[in-house]
Design a protein around this nucleic acid. Structure first.
Length: 436
RNA sequence: GCGCCGGUCGGAUAGUGGCUAUUCCAGGAGACUGUAAAUCUCCGGCCUUCGGGCAUCGCUGGUUCGAGUCCAGCCCGGCGCA
């Protein structure tokens, strides 16, 4: 992998560049499309390519569970298996330590909301305070009957009811110094990921850019826990790097991941430690405050070496893309465009809309009059409304094409504005209209 | 005309004497940031000073401390027999 910087903005952080991999190049900044299980949900690779996506990011945990690393290896690798011949990334599975652990059943997202913190206390907060660093993996038995009692079930509860309900409350991941123990979300079987195991699987999957194994913490976690998780992530980074250097057959680049939650000192410490390791690039992960993701990104990028690419994991929204790029991010990935598309939300220049709203039933205009994606070129809002209400599969396809085009193309427009020296004007105009 | 069965929210249903009438669908709205998500949450009779108050299971009466539930008559629908 090679990274080159074409132009830097006057603020000393933002840059236009290019990442070159053995499967082609990525003009940065760029939005990387998420294809967790070796498919971008509801889209063929041809559609993903046509809408302008440059690269796809898949997930180690999910591909390890299904179809399994042996099949991934025998298939000839991710590119061949899924028929995507452009650049690819794999996430290490570290995010699942959060989404299946602390965040499970807990309404926690990796984005914290300062205005609404009291009502949402993550269980990681409640349980990590002991001597162990384990994330609590089950609710206590004394809590279970409360849950059942509120389920409005009139009949007497059977033993199988109890087992089912308790099982339902169980978390699927817990963290130890050596790695993360996972319960398969598919069949409940137990698996253990270490940094070495994650890298080994990622070698078998064969993406161009792979990530070190890390722990993504809840935004509700205390400073002490974030520090503890960060230190552990640093030790895991070194183990990931050592294993990669010993075992990779060339062609795959390894990115280290900066953690540190919402805290400036932790973020800077993490950037320094990870930045000094011999990674090919960096991921910035973990939890952020909603209002200033980019502030945290700025802290980190001022410390990271400039000559290597920085990927902001799991972000974002249009405003986050501007903020991230302005503060030195080269690539992003995010499930939002495809997930909200499947649920009926569509991006427009004037903000998000919900195509299922009654007003679109007879609206024969385009979803976004200024959009030139395949969907907007050929279909009306009324037709999309009909497909969603009829629960037709193509609703997901057309909506995903639109949302991905919107986000991928927005980043391309940002890139163009940077080259023309009009980044800040473009940002202001876009945000003013989108969030009005 | 006689007999049997049945009328519960826009639709379909659960409920056969007990306090808040169940669930699903359709409908209205919201959420979603490294994907356990084509998912999830909320709303849905009327009034309200937001504490609550008043209604409601085809209609009218009755039995009962208490009726969607039991009884009688009536209305409507289905089936059968004339």
């Amino acid at each position: 992998m090679k990274f080159s910087i074409e132009k830097e903005l006057g603020n000393g952080r933002a840059r236009v560049g290019k990442i070159e991999t053995t499967h082609g190049s990525i003009e940065t900044p760029a939005f990387i499309v998420v294809g967790t299980k070796a498919t971008v949900k509801s889209l063929s690779p041809e559609q993903v390519n046509t809408l302008g996506a440059q690269a796809v990011l898949a997930n180690t945990y999910h591909l390890y569970l299904q179809p399994g690393e042996e099949i991934m290896k025998k298939s000839g690798g991710l590119h061949k298996f899924m028929n995507w011949h452009g650049p690819t990334f794999t996430d290490s599975g570290g995010f699942q330590a959060f989404s299946l652990g602390a965040a499970f059943n807990n309404s926690a997202s990796k984005i914290g909301d300062r205005n609404n913190e009291d009502g949402k206390i993550g269980s990681a907060d409640l349980h990590h305070k002991g001597t162990s660093c384990l994330i609590n993996q089950t609710m206590s038995r004394s809590e279970a009957p409360l849950f059942l009692a509120s389920s409005k079930k009139k009949d007497l509860l059977t033993v199988s009811d109890l087992n089912f309900s308790e099982h339902n409350q169980e978390k699927f991941a817990k963290v130890t110094e050596d790695g993360v123990e996972f319960r398969s979300v598919l069949d409940g079987s137990t698996h253990f990921f270490t940094p070495e195991k994650s890298i080994e699987i990622q070698h078998n999957i064969g993406a161009d850019i792979i990530f070190a194994f890390d722990e993504c913490t809840s935004p509700h976690a205390s400073y002490e826990y974030q520090k503890e998780a960060m230190d552990r992530t640093h030790r895991w980074a070194k183990r990931s790097l050592d294993y990669h250097k010993e075992n990779n057959e060339g062609g795959q680049a390894l990115f280290g991941i900066v953690q540190g939650g919402r805290y400036e000192d932790l973020r800077k410490e993490s950037a320094k430690i990870i930045g000094e390791m011999d990674f090919d690039g960096f991921g910035i992960g973990g939890s952020f405050d909603k209002e200033d993701i980019y502030t945290a990104v700025g802290w980190v990028n001022d410390v990271l070496p400039k000559g290597k690419p920085r990927h902001l994991l799991g972000i974002g929204e249009p405003v986050d893309l501007f903020g991230g790029i302005e503060n030195g991010i080269d690539t992003f990935d995010c499930v939002t465009p495809t997930r909200i598309a499947r649920n009926g939300s569509l991006y427009t220049r004037d903000g998000r809309i919900n195509i299922l709203n009654a007003k679109y039933v007879g609206d024969f205009t385009k979803v976004d009059s200024e959009c030139s994606c395949y969907t907007c070129t050929n279909y009306t809002a009324a037709y999309l409304s009909h497909l969603f209400r009829a629960k037709e599969m193509m609703a997901a396809t057309l909506a995903s094409i639109h949302n991905l085009y919107f986000i991928v193309n927005l980043v391309k427009e940002i890139r163009a504005s940077m080259l023309e020296g009009e980044f800040f004007e473009f940002k202001e105009a876009f945000i003013k209209r989108y969030y009005k």
